[in-house]
Computed example of a mutant assay.
Amino acid sequence: MRKSFPFSAIVGQSEMKQALLMAAVEPRLGGVMVFGDRGTGKSTAVRALAALLPPMKVVPGCRYGCAPDDSTTCFEGCRERAGKRTEAASVPFVDLPLGATEDRVVGSLDLERALATGEKRFEPGLLAKANRGFLYIDEINLLEDHLVDLLLDVAVSGQNVVEREGLSIRHPARFILVGSGNPEEGELRPQLLDRFGLSVDVRTPTDIADRIEIVKRCDAFDRDPEGFCAAYEGDEHAVLDQIAAARKKLPKVDVPDSILELGTRLCQAVGADGLRGELTLLRAARATAALAGKKHVLPAHVGAVATLALRHRMRKNVLDDTGSTARIERAVAELIPA
């Protein structure tokens, strides 16, 4: 099996890596949208993070990768049949193709079995395979709108409900949704973009030294994947330890009322629509504090995630030709003095 490019070996793109780390620590953030130029390492970073995470415990034989300690009942009874037995499995990474049908995504009746035996049996789709892992959609702005609506609803609820062909199925589908695309090929509808927790802008590096280093590392990985990964093994363990420590600390991180007020004032200052911005600011700032090993969320943590959490929730101001990022940075500078 071909190794994935090490997460710690990715040059630059600090905003994208920060967003993915926060999503790995706090899945309730609602996923990450990465817009930017082609060939900037978007899918590489997501695959690298999924490969970096330690194997997870699953119920043996379960087609949905259910956790042994999950309190909900698997409708196929896998947990009851397995008893206390468990097995290890890699964190799922599912790449959803643009041409995928709704049946392929949500699952459908197993026609071959139905024709052969007359038995109605559900054939899980891509959402089932992505349970407890990552669901990656490249060029999500080109995906059919009804599929995007379906994916976002499942990502929020954590369950996939299938009512068709005489079947009534409800199975777990908790995954970190990561979408990427090139704005030149079409924008994502604002009401759908708003459902993503974090939004990242990725651009082609302009620094000559960075570009040279990227080419050198990609070439070295292609020539000797085993040796290249071995060279970054220590750095990968450091990232993994950071994620594990942050997950453990996250429930204990305190968020003072003053931080909640700061988040509200920031959302009002930039004109963010709805209240998802404030909730995302809270979760992102808490994840950032946990990654930094802090016990309390500080104003600096809110400022660090403000752009990621709010840039895609702002209306365009015809009287202000500056971009959303500049407007957020200006509001942060006013509300959170250095």
Rank of each mutant, 00 (worst) to 15 (best):
E213H: 06
D254N: 13
P190M: 12
A331C: 07
T72W: 15
L192F: 10
D153M: 12
R85G: 14
L279A: 11
V305A: 01
H171R: 12
A23V: 02
R203Y: 14
N160I: 02
D219M: 13
A51W: 03
L147M: 15
R311N: 12
A45K: 00
L275C: 13
H301G: 05
E119P: 04
A82Q: 02
A231Y: 10
T206L: 10
E15G: 12
L192E: 10
G158D: 02
G227K: 07
D95M: 02
E163K: 07
R203D: 12
D207R: 14
D219T: 14
L151M: 13
V59M: 09
D254A: 09
R104P: 05
S43M: 04
G30C: 05
M1C: 10
S168F: 14
F7I: 03
R330C: 04
G36E: 05
G133L: 00
E184V: 12
C62F: 10
I10F: 05
L188T: 01
G125N: 08
I243E: 10
G77R: 03
N160Y: 01
T117L: 15
A116R: 15
R327I: 06
K216A: 14
G39L: 05
I169M: 11
Q242Y: 07
D149L: 09
A89L: 07
R85A: 15
E233Q: 15
L282G: 07
T322R: 15
V162Q: 03
E184I: 10
C229H: 03
A292M: 09
E163N: 09
D241T: 11
M314K: 09
L291I: 11
I176M: 11
D110F: 14
G65Y: 01
A128L: 08
E76A: 10
D222F: 05
D207W: 12
L260N: 09
R38Q: 13
A290Y: 05
L266C: 07
V106S: 08
G12K: 04
L96Q: 02
M33W: 13
R315G: 12
A338R: 15
L135Y: 00
A173Q: 03
G293N: 08
P337F: 08
L151N: 04
A48F: 02
L49N: 06
G41Y: 01
G39M: 07
V105T: 07
F5H: 01
P124T: 12
L142H: 12
